[in-house]
Each structure stands twice: as C-alpha cells, then as structure tokens.
Design a protein around this nucleic acid. Structure first.
Lengths: 230, 230
DNA sequence: CTACTATTGATAGTAGAACAATCGAAAGCA
DNA sequence: TGCTTTCGATTGTTCTACTATCAATAGTAG
C-alpha cells in the first residue's frame, strides 16, 4: 500500500509517519520507484504499536525507538509445532529464555537518560536490596529497576515519609502475584504471534491500566471506610 | 529566609523558583519591602513536594499546579486530640470524609487535558463497568478512572490483545488488596501532618515504585520459570 | 556617603520534543 | 498533457520547562 493508505488506515498523518521513519521507529517502505515506496500490513501493525507506546503509554519517542530496536533484532516467534499456547511449563525451552532476555533488555531501554542522571542514595539502595533478599528474588545485580525504586523511596523520604523494606513487603508480595498473572497471560499467547512483542504489550501497556485499577480500588475502599452519611 | 537560601536548601535555582511562583505551584513570599520577600519552612516543604511531583513522578507542571491547588484549599490536619495515628476505625469522622473527597478531586486533577480529549470505545466502557460490578466496587459514576481504563483496553485491543473483564479480575483483586495496604499506611500517618497531602504522597509518588516492584517480580519469575541453563 | 551585592516583578530568550509544512524532482493516473 | 501523489530533505511551528536579563530598589561593608 502507499503511504496515504497507511496514513488513513492508522489515523496517523503522513508527516508524522515520515517523522517516525526518520527517527527509526518505523522501517522505511520498500522503494519501488524514486518517488514511491510500498508498505505492508507489518508496517501498519508496527505503526499502531508505536502509537500505543507514544500516545497511550506516553513514552518519549526516543525511548520508544530503543524499545522497538530491541524487539526488531529478535525473532521470537511462538512455535506452531502442535502445542498450542496453553502449555504452562517450560516446553518452549530456548524460546522462553529468549523472551526473558528480551524483557530484561526492554526494561533497560525504558528508563530514560533523565532517570539515570540522578543517583539514588546509598540508604535507599540498601533498603531495596534488603527487600529483594527478603522476597527471595533473584535479580540481575545491575538491573535498572533497583536504583529506580531507591530513588522513589528517596523522594518520599525527603518529604518526611519514611518507607522501609518492612513497609514495602506487603506491596512486594502483591507485585509478585501480579507478575504471576502477567506470566500466565503471556503463556496463553496465541501461536504464531511474536512472543517478545506480546510480552512488551502486556507489561508496558498494562502499566497505566493497573494504576487505574488501584485508583478505583482506593476510591471504593476510601468510601467504604468512611461511610457516606447521606 | 530569603530566596537565595530557599534555593540553596532545596537545590532548585532561583529562576526556577520564580517560575513556579508565576505558575501558581508555590505561593509568593511575604513581601517585606519592594525588593524583598520572606520565605519560611512551609515554602521549603512545598517546594520539595513540587519537585517530587514534577521531577520524580514526571507530572506536567500545569497538572501539578492543579493537584496542589486542590491540596491548598483544604486544611485537613490530622487531629492531635490524644488518639495517635494508629487507630484504624473511623474515629476521625468528618476529617476522614474530607480526605476521601480530596483524593477524588486530586485524581480528577491528575488526568490531563490530553487524556480527556480521546474518547473511549463503548465496548471498553462496558467491559470496565462489568468489572466494577463484579468486584462490587462503589465508584462515582463520573470518575475519570473509568474511561482511562477503557482507553488502555482499547489500545491493547487495537494490537490484537483482547482483555475482557474476566481476564482483568485477578488484577482487580490484587489492586483491591494494594489499596487496603495504602489505606492502612495512611491511617498510620503521624499526628499533626496534613492528611490530604500524605494521601497524595502515598498514592501519587508510590505509583512508579509499585510499577518497579512489578518489574522486579517479573524479572524474578521469568527467570524462575525458564531456569538458567548455566 | 559610596560601592557593591541581593532581590523584586516583568519580560524576553532558549533548548528540546513532537510534529507539520513546504519544496523540487520524479512518477502515476486520466 | 495536465493533475495528483509521493519521495527525501529541509525548514517551520507549537508547547513545555526553564533560564537570562533588566531597571528599580533595598540592604550592607567600608
């Protein structure tokens, strides 16, 4: 299809599509003449993914480019070898490992330069490591998540809200069960789909949804604890 | 104190402080002469709160201004009437109601104009309402959280990931328990502190921390399910 | 009293991000 | 043949979050 059709079917303007191609978010079309290139369904799919990351999740364009670059260089197709997507054990073997490694790299790509430039306090880092130990989590020692969490604790500490690893423990337990639901959902991915992309969708795009669920639950419980006198 | 001291003690440049005052994020100092104003510890505290919302949480300055405006017009001091902060029932009465209303308004202020402009699909809204009913949640019908969640589901749907209310149910149950932890933490707020501000800190600033916890748990479980062959 | 620095409010400028518009050349379509 | 579309490249626009400068004025050290 031509760029105008790609534009109309995705709802993204031609100028913006060209911008995304320049920034490496979208591969260029297959050039068919000096003034024409051909785009296929993969381009459309990819473009929708870009819009989900940029417009819905609110990732900076450069960060989205990093995330997509990680996805692009890994062809982790879900096997079509007779086993459907509902098997939950490690039958997929090497492919599953691939997804795990891709997810790690995606998370690494997702913390922006802005996040990295501010260092976490030593006290915060200690508290986070203590939590990881208490939960028995096996975490890559250079995982970007550790200083990110430490910085969040630092910010609260600055405002007089001291949160130690014991306070964080119930949250961590709930996060652990959330992650289990995540992986169950991922294990049920349809055959033939890109496992790594599916993983990114479920983790990155579900983030805002989970926060909203917390809001809703807070609203309910807050009302329940302080019953409306009316 | 003078503005230079406010600047050095907060680590925020004088020019930026003036900018925040212009934008209504920070009240102006008490003018003591034509070229001098006086700032106190409250200003410093408020400035640190602003930085936490803007730099740490990443809220747009205009949104942070809305949130702070809601906080400013409500003086919900935690009572110093002999009961310390560890009581968990509704002994606080009207004050608790106040916090509940403030939290609702803060959440309303937090979804930006950008969020509101895109409408959610009818199918997504139906799914969310079904979830709320299934959980037995009592939610304000015009709560901004409902269309926000619906839009997140729409985005996933566009990419071939259909998430219905049954899939969302386990997440909702975990969100409910997370909210319980939130409110327990809030009930333990120290006497004399601003309850509404405390509530905002615990919900808004804890958001990124909870997402990071999910990342850590995913990393652990992903590794555990696909054992490292080395 | 004088020189110097600090602060005030106001205004203007800057840098980056995310697009949007324009352009000449070449190609397709009627 | 004339009109439209697309190409790649360049330039322009809008918004956000600051940053810098300025004249006026006040405190401050000698």
């Amino acid at each position: 299809m031509r760029i105008s059709e790609l534009s109309s079917r995705s709802g993204v303007s031609i100028a913006t599509i060209k911008y995304y191609i320049r920034e490496g978010l979208l591969p260029a079309g297959r050039p068919v003449a000096a003034n024409q290139a051909d785009y296929d369904e993969d381009h459309l799919r990819r473009l929708r993914l870009v819009r989900a990351l940029v417009a819905e999740r609110g990732l900076p364009v450069s960060t989205a480019a990093d995330v997509l670059a990680v996805l692009a260089e890994t062809g982790t197709q879900n096997g079509t070898d007779g086993t459907d997507g509902t098997d939950e054990d490690g039958a997929a073997g090497g492919e599953g490992r691939g997804v795990h490694r891709v997810l790690g790299r995606v998370f690494g790509a997702m913390d922006t330069a802005r996040d990295r430039e501010r260092a976490a306090s030593e006290a915060g880092l200690t508290e986070v490591r203590r939590l990881v130990t208490a939960m028995g989590w096996r975490i890559h020692p250079r995982s970007a998540a550790v200083p990110a969490l430490a910085r969040a604790l630092d910010a609260l500490d600055q405002l007089g809200v001291r949160i130690d690893c014991r306070t964080l423990l119930p949250y961590a337990r709930l996060a652990e069960r959330t992650a289990e639901v995540d992986l169950d959902l991922l294990a049920a991915a349809p055959a033939g789909s890109d496992l790594a992309e599916h993983a990114v969708l479920l983790t990155v795009l579900l983030d805002p949804a989970l926060l909203v669920l917390r809001r809703l639950a807070q609203e309910h419980h807050s009302a329940a604890r302080q019953p409306d006198p009316t």
